[in-house]
Design a protein around this nucleic acid. Sequence first.
DNA 1: ATGAAAGCGCTAACAA
DNA 2: TTGTTAGCGCTTTCAT
Lengths: 336, 336
Amino acid sequence: MTILDVAERAGVHAATVSRALNVPEKVAPETRARVEQAVRELAFVPNRAARGLITGRTGNIAVIVPDITNPHFASLVRAVERTARDAELQVLLVDTGEHPDEEVRAVRTMAHDVEGFIVVSPRRVHRELGSLGSRPVVFVNRPVRGHASVLLRTAPALADAVQHLESLGHRSLAYLGGPRGSWAAGERRNAVRRSGRAAGLHVVELVVAEPTFEATLDVVPRIVDCGASAVIAFNDQMAFGVISGLTGRGMSVPGDVSVVGFDDVPMATMVAPALTTIRLPAAEAGALAVAMLSEQPTCTELRGELVLRHSTGPVSHRRASVGGVRERPSSGAGPW
Amino acid sequence: MTILDVAERAGVHAATVSRALNVPEKVAPETRARVEQAVRELAFVPNRAARGLITGRTGNIAVIVPDITNPHFASLVRAVERTARDAELQVLLVDTGEHPDEEVRAVRTMAHDVEGFIVVSPRRVHRELGSLGSRPVVFVNRPVRGHASVLLRTAPALADAVQHLESLGHRSLAYLGGPRGSWAAGERRNAVRRSGRAAGLHVVELVVAEPTFEATLDVVPRIVDCGASAVIAFNDQMAFGVISGLTGRGMSVPGDVSVVGFDDVPMATMVAPALTTIRLPAAEAGALAVAMLSEQPTCTELRGELVLRHSTGPVSHRRASVGGVRERPSSGAGPW
DNA sequence: ATGAAAGCGCTAACAA
DNA sequence: TTGTTAGCGCTTTCAT
């Protein structure tokens, strides 16, 4: 099933078929119709590899993520795939398992096969990655000079969160940081420091080995020890870990401690108490990254947004109605 | 950076370079060494498209899933990607958004570009899909005659679950079924009926519009009405919905109602009560599917396994220690 | 507006 | 063991 079969069927030369498919306006309407019919009858699909060999356009892009199992990245990849499909691009997926070296290997071996890379790389980028650039790269959540990037800004939302906690009477805050070398981790830590100081809060920074539920459980005793009445975690998984560890010790959330996460994964609404978190527009970031692949390299910013749910509350034990609009009332299909 | 550059540098003909790379034993050791060095020095990576054009082997496979955002499918895709990489295959991802038509479109347009398809298709397969087969297809959780498939068998695990509930004193069970047209849904429904009858349980089958958390919330009143003391849901998301809906109505899990899910997504261990569920070996299924792509079409079966946690308990209100080994003690880092 | 011919980067017969 | 040659399916000048 090649272009020659179509040509024969339509009674034209292969070059004409090619033109009818790629530059239809340069083909007589009547000829074009014959070609289109032949294409339909034979269910012809052009061979992208052959086309790419000569045009250089393979019709593929690659998206490189640390862990597709993380709902945040899954949402992003989903948006990438949808957007790419609309542009008639196919998506090659690489899951590095958090190994930066794997990013470099992937970019090296796939450079011929794709028109561009979307690299979602929370950790530090291998220095080689920035330079070896025959193909355009859009980095997500990591600015790299000379390359495009889309950044998820969280400082304003974080300021909102701190302000929210302060207005609930909290005076001491624990911050559970993200992985070393992660741009997002640095940005968020700075923002917490700054807005904590601005609000007059005492901020304790805690380091967690990995940004996971399990690793966070180990840190919970230190949260209790430091006496903070509120916790902000680097992501929702960690926030779940804090809640689990706290309630497992007989403490109540938000009765004893308020908890705020990051990402707004779907599960954030399904647990009890529903998680107050900073929503990151993963889908928008994915779609944007695809679009930016075919533009001049720029650095675009998207903003996170505080979502109030039920894991934050006043510092006192009696729950009272507080200022600020919650996503849904405490009654109804509330916390478990 | 083509094979000719390498040939020139190594002082040999392009064909020799090709041989040194693909059939090294047919090249003199000394020549091979020179070629290998040139390859290294130039950081040469062969163009897969050009290679594929002549060999027919593109070095790509495609994996088609209904929703990459579902942790179950994400795990499967992750395993596919890892296994494929070890076989020097790249993976093209397609997320159909639960639309079977999209599967057909994908298989049509990508047939040239891949050496095989892995189709994870809980819903009924478009009849066209089975026939149009220039490339091998491995179906997951859907037997299709003439094609390979890997099936996740759940009848034994489901029998264990029903037996478990029966031994806890439950006599009436609600089953929340999966999507119409899904092979897995049919298999599980039959298994529930059969083992329910065998255990002498009264089984009520409830239909949910979609296998999601939200859609399940709407069904919760009917669960309450039917008076069942135990619920088995088609997947973990739905089980979370049941628990949320029940506790939102002031009922206790497992105090008033026991709940069992399917999949064993990571969140199953993070919520309170931790979810008793039937673990499906998604990663194994993914790895197996890749391997089966290059074998004779067969139908392989993997088995689900009951995992006891804390969302099931005795029918009475006072919690008592029961038979059967739980994954972890009720004390310690127990439910939130 | 269409056809002829060359060639993208690589592999596989065949020859030497 | 290595080189020569043809060609995978397609696009793109250049002619006509």
